[in-house]
Simulated scan of single mutants.
Amino acid sequence: MGRLLRWMALAALMAALLAGLVACGPPRKSVFPPSVSIQEVSLRPNGQWQLTLRIQNNSYGGMDFRSIDGELKVADLVPVRLHTRFDLDIPAFAADVTQINLLPTPEMTAALKATASKGSAGSLAYSVSGNTSAQPEQEKAARDFTFHDNDWLSPVPGIPNTWR
């Protein structure tokens, strides 16, 4: 009889432990802010710039990116607004691109064109900053992530009106 009670107590303890482990669910994946940078700028005949924005998911799980709202600043000139909506499902530690057309200030266009005469030795500082809306795979709603990037644009040899 004592042996039976010990086995029943052990079985009850194991059932409680198993129920506790099942309640825990899958482990949560760490979520980190993404990186947003300019991959390419193309000057269009109508004066617009076509930006190819690179979005790097720095999280341990996939994220569904939906929009960007921020600003682009070239050199020390007045910034212009970056805003676009899209739907990109980016896996963990991967990147994807989206394109956005914007109308720059005349000073921005002049500064960009001035680098073209210098060839690949020419460069122009830029910064992008703002928020991107994304939904991590284990969350029920999207949230905003802040981004900020500083880098340089240089003319692409052999491809007119294009900078990277």
Score class of each variant (00 low, 15 high):
Lys118Pro: 02
Gly25Ala: 02
Asp144Glu: 14
Val41Phe: 04
Ser120Gln: 10
Ala9Met: 09
Leu10Gln: 13
Leu153Gln: 11
Leu13Arg: 09
Arg85Trp: 11
Lys118Cys: 01
Asn58Pro: 02
Pro34Met: 05
Val36Asp: 04
Trp163Ser: 05
Thr84Asp: 12
Glu71Met: 12
Ile159Gln: 13
Ser127Asp: 13
Gln39Pro: 00
Gly70Ile: 05
Pro45Ala: 11
Glu139Met: 11
Thr162Lys: 09
Arg28Ile: 04
Ser129Thr: 03
Val36Ser: 01
Ser127Asn: 12
Leu13Met: 12
Val36Ile: 15
Glu71Asp: 10
Leu18Ser: 04
Ser129Phe: 10
Arg6Asn: 14
Cys24Trp: 03
Leu13Gln: 06
Asp149Ala: 09
Ala111Gly: 01
Phe93Trp: 11
Ala125His: 06
Leu112Ala: 12
Arg6Tyr: 15
Leu51Asn: 03
Ala142Ile: 02
Leu88Arg: 12
Ile90Glu: 08
Pro79Ile: 07
Lys140Phe: 09
Ala110Tyr: 07
Ala110Asp: 09
Asp69Leu: 10
Ala114Gln: 14
Ser67Ala: 15
Ser30Ala: 15
Ser127Ile: 00
Ile55Pro: 01
Phe86Asp: 08
Val74Pro: 01
Val41Leu: 15
Leu53Lys: 00
Val36Leu: 11
Ala23Asn: 07
Thr98Ala: 11
Met63His: 10
Pro155Arg: 08
Trp7Gln: 12
Val156Asn: 07
Gln135Leu: 00
Arg3Pro: 00
Thr84His: 00
Phe145Pro: 01
Ile100Asp: 04
Asp76Thr: 09
Arg3Gln: 12
His83Ser: 12
Ser154Glu: 05
Lys113Glu: 15
Gly130Trp: 09
Leu82Pro: 02
Gln56Ile: 05
Glu137Gly: 04
